[in-house]
């Protein structure tokens, strides 16, 4: 439940103001979102990400050296408008093209595509790599229609690291696409979330039950079960994410290297996530997977929804290097 706001209509604007004030060293507010506050002197392609608000640290928390150049910030759970995206693209462009990357949702695709057309008309080389990691949103043979959830982070990080290295737009686009090819996620939830000023949660799960495969905007889950133990949840994640149809081309489970991202959606706390992670590490280890640089925390939330998702990024040497490269943003920092 959301409790702290002044006027629900002004919530997102005031949130952006507060975010930019608290992170003035990282970001600068522009119409429709934020861009980096410091422009790097070297030219190069820019990475612009974005989507609805309410998923912090996605998307604005990921703007900074080694990651994104700008983030378009829509209303709560609503894609930014075409005009907002266009404005962020223009503010983030460094003259060598722009890669747009965001989760695959109808509203985002429509608005980002319209914005892309608009800036292309002005000669900006603007491309798109959609994130389609949620295995519960379509079968493997329709992978490109899947929606994007916490796997956003892997694709953004890879693209941002490549841009930081000074690679060309072609290259940044290629590795981002490869990152998405190698990323799979699934989520579960125990409660819905209530937006500022709303009377009811966006959806609800009966007490003691768990929705499986739900989206990060309160889109209903595909299935419902009793709440499992922490170990049971780890088994469920592993069973689905290691099912044969979900192993990317070129990966053999036994001997593979993989970055696990165990993501809390809002009200499931780190302590619980660590208990789940313990079982995950055991189960994946038993299957011969080497876990690289695990991430346990909040990376793509759904306001205060109680839920969790697991993302697996199956790395090759190039992706591993890009994933582990230095980054310095309001919400994602790591040394080189």
């Amino acid at each position: 439940m959301t409790r702290l706001w002044n006027d629900p209509q002004r919530f997102v604007d005031e949130m952006i103001d507060g975010f930019a004030l608290a992170n003035a060293g990282y970001v600068r507010k522009v119409r429709g979102g934020v861009t980096r506050s410091t422009r790097s002197p070297e030219p190069g392609p820019s990475l612009v990400i974005g989507g609805g608000s309410g998923h912090y640290p996605a998307f604005a928390g990921l703007v900074g050296p080694g990651l994104a150049h700008g983030a378009a910030m829509g209303n709560l759970f609503a894609s930014p408008s075409t005009t907002q995206i266009e404005s962020v693209i223009r503010a983030s462009d460094r003259g060598d093209g722009v890669l747009l990357s965001y989760g695959n949702y109808a509203g985002d695709v429509l608005n980002f595509t319209a914005a892309q057309e608009a800036v292309r008309a002005d000669g900006i080389d603007c491309r798109t790599v959609l994130v389609t990691d949620d295995i519960f949103s379509a079968p493997p043979d329709a992978r490109d229609t899947r929606r994007g959830i916490a796997g956003d982070l892997t694709v953004f990080k890879i693209a941002g690291a490549a841009a930081e290295e000074g690679r060309s737009l072609d290259e940044v686009e290629r590795v981002a696409r490869q990152g998405n090819e190698r990323t799979r996620s699934m989520g579960v939830a125990f409660t819905g979330c209530t937006l500022p000023g709303a009377d009811e949660p966006l959806f609800s799960v009966p007490e003691g039950r768990m929705a499986v495969g739900l989206g990060i905007h309160g889109e209903p889950g595909i299935d419902e079960t009793d709440i499992p133990t922490a170990e049971g949840l780890a088994e469920l994640f592993v069973e689905h994410l290691l099912s044969p149809g979900e192993i990317p081309d070129g990966v053999t489970i036994d001997g593979a290297r993989c970055v696990p991202i165990l993501n809390g959606l809002g009200s499931v706390k780190s302590e619980e996530l660590f208990v789940v992670y313990r079982s995950l590490a055991l189960l994946l280890g038993e299957r011969g997977v080497t876990l690289v640089d695990p991430q346990v925390g909040e990376f793509c939330t759904s306001f205060d929804m109680a839920g969790a998702s697991l993302t697996l990024l199956w790395v090759d040497d190039e992706l591993e290097g890009l994933w582990t490269a230095a980054a310095d943003t309001p919400a994602f920092r790591r040394g080189s």
Partner: peptide, 15 residues
Amino acid sequence: LISTVGGASGPLLGT
């Protein structure tokens, strides 16, 4: 509509 709505319905109805 295009500049204020966002979501799928914004660009669709706007267009």
